[in-house]
Amino acid sequence: MDIFGVPIQALMGQLMLGIVNGSFYAVLSLGLAIIFGVLKIVNFAHGAFFMLGAFTAFLLGQHLGANYWVALVAAPIAVALFGMLFEWLFLRRLYGLDPIYGLLLTFSLVLVLEGGFRVAFGSSGQPYATPEALRGTINLGFMVLPIYRGFVILAAVLTCLVTWYVIERTSVGARLRAATERAELTQAFGINVPLLVTLTYGVGVGLAAFAGVLAAPIFHVNPSMGSSLVIIIFAVVVIGGLGSIMGAIVTGLGLGVVEGFTRVFYSEFSSTIVFLVMVLVLLIRPAGLFGREES
């Protein structure tokens, strides 16, 4: 069976790849949106933390013999702790200044981390094995699905939904949203806002690292795996607007699918389609699909 002259197997395969990429976009832009909401800082280092997550998983396996499942939990926690330390030591000093400085500071962290890992491991990638239980494929009739990719989509979507639930439906989330709207008033109600800010940064960074561990068996683990991704995430965020959590998730997944389809029908544009969509959105709806006009 063909659709527009493309065999359905190939179409579904690319669509699935698109959803996998979209899952990464969703988890990463979700973290970016959470951090931006509370800290009012665009975390340029988000891609670097993604890379750090993948490398931590790799190193845990290499030196401590930790398997994939341990790494999936331990690596995001380790990277989150590192991120919180960074926030506590450096980022904190820039609150109240033009948010551009936050962008620049996190950018400088990218240079340090990427450069550091390139010194230590070189530019070429390190392979990371897919866990035993998730190898092989399932035949769904209309397509053959590698089990690990299915798992990535499931894990990413589940993570997004849990994060959304915690922020929108629990008391911790309510405090977080209060701090987003009126930090000083929230502080006056006896909530430790600086701690909340540090924890928020940790959660956002942890999400990026989690995506990094998920990505490790699919991509080669290499120092620059995050930096090209973070630019796409920025475009995603411009398209979706940083204001809404659900918006970030939906836009991320949606753009992944769009990218997948582009790869089938016009592969030359597959690496730039997200940016072209961004141009279109800027022309038609400058505030972004889910965005409120920023002040």
Binding site: I100, L103, I231, A235, V238, T272, F275, M278, L283, A287
Partner: peptide, 18 residues
């Protein structure tokens, strides 16, 4: 310039990647 501040920075970065 349809956006400002950090959004503008992100847009220019994305455009330069294009």
């Amino acid at each position: 310039i349809r956006r400002s501040g950090i959004y503008l920075a992100m847009i220019t970065l994305a455009m330069s990647q294009l």
